[in-house]
Design a protein around this nucleic acid. Structure first.
Lengths: 334, 334
DNA sequence: ATACGTACCTGTTACGTATCAGGATGTGAC
DNA sequence: GTCACATCCTGATACGTAACAGGTACGTAT
């Protein structure tokens, strides 16, 4: 049925080993004469030979498949702009390297949650290594994955499993630049509205904020603590600038301001520590330009480097983050 | 390094074959006594055995991987709402069936175009079969794929390769319902604005339109033929209803109408033969509800059925299409 | 005539699994 | 005591490829 090297060998009157040499391009190196090479190639052409990638990976250990693992569906019910850009980068890099992507949908259990080790047969092994994506993670599972020495790279810093390789976003420089903008405009009292979660990108932003505001009066509120009256309170207490941890919060602040008759940047200067959604109302805020695509690309490249033994299993890569300064930071009114 | 069945066998004092029986769940069927089964299972537990999916698929012929092939990137530069829903369905069905998805990014060539047979080694073989997605297709390549007896299912009718299996959308009923709505409202002269392409979904819609309008006065224009003056001309010639082949065209008509001081549905009744984008201005038009998710699901299921030999390689499946009637169809003014 | 080198190729093994055909052992019937 | 039969297990083989170690044949040098 399927054409094998053995069939080619028979047709060309040589051994299977010789065919293998020609197929893998080491014919000359392996000492196959040009005329024999021609015979073999002709036979391949005539019989329509296609190497079997599965047999290849069983033997050689490499399948050319890069896994993408998430605890959520890769294709969410509605297009998810947040993760999309990472995936664009991942696909670009995979295409560049001639690798294919495996999405591990099989890991989904009856309850909808995903688990690497649930099925018993670790399907991740189909891929040479995997990129781990997403907010929700089972730290124990991933720690075990690391202990099993399965090669993987986390998209984003991943402190709970320090043995893991990852590509992180370096928020510090960009946040500092935004704070400096506030300073130049005369702001010395800055409020920060944080999300209600302890997810890693959020923590990194809070950390970067704290590190950039030495000497300023700062106030950190969580999303639930922020309400209709907060802006008034801030105003009374002399706070003149607001930072939202993510676009959702920025929208919330924007709405509260509108209802209170306050405006950005006339009454409050504002910035958002994330890239706002295209269609969002806070798209005009000064914000960070999180290099998602670049992070995706680097993740695949880092994984490749680890597989090639060029970098250690626990290597950490860091990508610079830029900021986009729009007109939402105005001079403090005296 | 890696734990194999052989290691388990040695630890439990049995043969590799017995281990295989336990792993695959045919232990009792194969006549392994409960006590031996326990010994084997204990050994597996202790040594941390994980079956190798690659070896499994080499032997058994099935990898549990479902390919997804597109001539465009699966993750386009901006989130593509059109294809997204198909992919949601595909991922859902794959998860249900315990299968993983392979995105063939490796088929991308230096010029950015993709090709199945370019690399020489047909990477599609990694998957048991594939779902083919997207507007742009290389008919010759896909015909060859069919001739090679590679199992695949086209998302959408695919006449250029009739040997291919596909899941098509049955537009006829839904389009007929919309035309009947026009009729009830007294419209007898209907214009249709078609896209400038000969892509298959477009052709199917045109065909469904033609089949539903017997006896009506109809006029079919392409997108480029439609301009600022068209609406006026139509009005003078008694045309009172417009059908747009897709949301882009609907937007265009909407804009032209706005500039001409005409309104939908007061001056023209209107409908769109596609599901408008969430954010689009034509979202209020009566339109078709293309069951994309369902098509995705069925494609994967059809592929599975073909792989199981339950359906022939060239089977065609058809999904009913619904229509969503909004207030853009009004009674003709006398 | 023997030794040596080179050009060209092949036999064999391994990757980890699933399956088939059959071997050993014990039990009961006649 | 022999045969039939079930129970429990195993050896061998195949899947398609890559790589290693080495073999044959021929020509040249001594």
């Amino acid at each position: 049925m399927r054409v094998r090297q053995r069939d080619i060998a028979q047709a060309a009157g040589v051994s299977q080993a010789s065919v293998s040499l020609v197929v893998s391009g080491r014919a000359s190196e392996g000492g196959i004469s040009p005329s024999t090479q021609d015979r073999i190639r002709t036979a391949m052409e005539e019989l329509g030979y296609r190497p079997d990638p599965v047999a290849r990976s069983l033997r050689g250990g490499r399948s050319g498949l890069v896994g993408v693992f998430t605890y959520e569906p890769v294709f969410p019910a509605r297009p998810d702009e947040y993760f999309h850009e990472f995936l664009v980068g991942i696909e670009m890099a995979a295409a560049d390297r001639g690798q294919d992507l495996v999405l591990f949908s099989s890991t989904q259990q009856a309850d909808g949650r995903r688990s690497i080790y649930a099925g018993g047969s670790s399907r991740l092994q189909h891929a040479d290594g995997s990129v781990i994506l997403g907010m929700h993670r089972d730290d124990d599972e991933l720690a075990r994955l690391a202990k099993d020495e399965y090669p993987f790279v986390s998209v984003g810093r991943y402190d709970p499993v320090p043995e893991a390789a990852w590509v992180e976003v370096d928020y510090d420089g960009a946040v500092r630049a935004i704070i400096e903008d506030f300073h130049r405009a005369g702001h010395r009292a800055i409020a920060y509205v944080a999300g209600d979660n302890a997810r890693l990108p959020s923590l990194a932003r809070r950390h970067a904020f704290a590190a950039s505001t030495r000497g300023d009066t700062t106030q950190i509120l969580t999303e639930t603590e922020f309400d209709e009256n907060t802006l008034g309170t801030w105003r009374d207490s002399g706070i003149t600038a607001v930072i939202a941890e993510n676009p959702d919060i920025a929208e919330k602040v924007e709405r509260a301001a509108a209802r209170a008759g306050l405006r950005v940047p006339d009454d409050f200067s504002a910035a958002c520590l994330d890239t706002p959604l295209r269609s969002g109302r806070s798209a005009s805020w000064s914000h960070l330009l999180i290099p998602k695509r670049e992070v995706g690309i680097r993740s695949v490249n880092l994984l490749a480097a680890i597989l090639d033994g060029k970098l250690p299993r626990g290597h950490h890569d860091s990508v610079q983050c830029a900021s986009h300064h729009l007109g939402t930071i105005a001079a403090e009114r005296v």
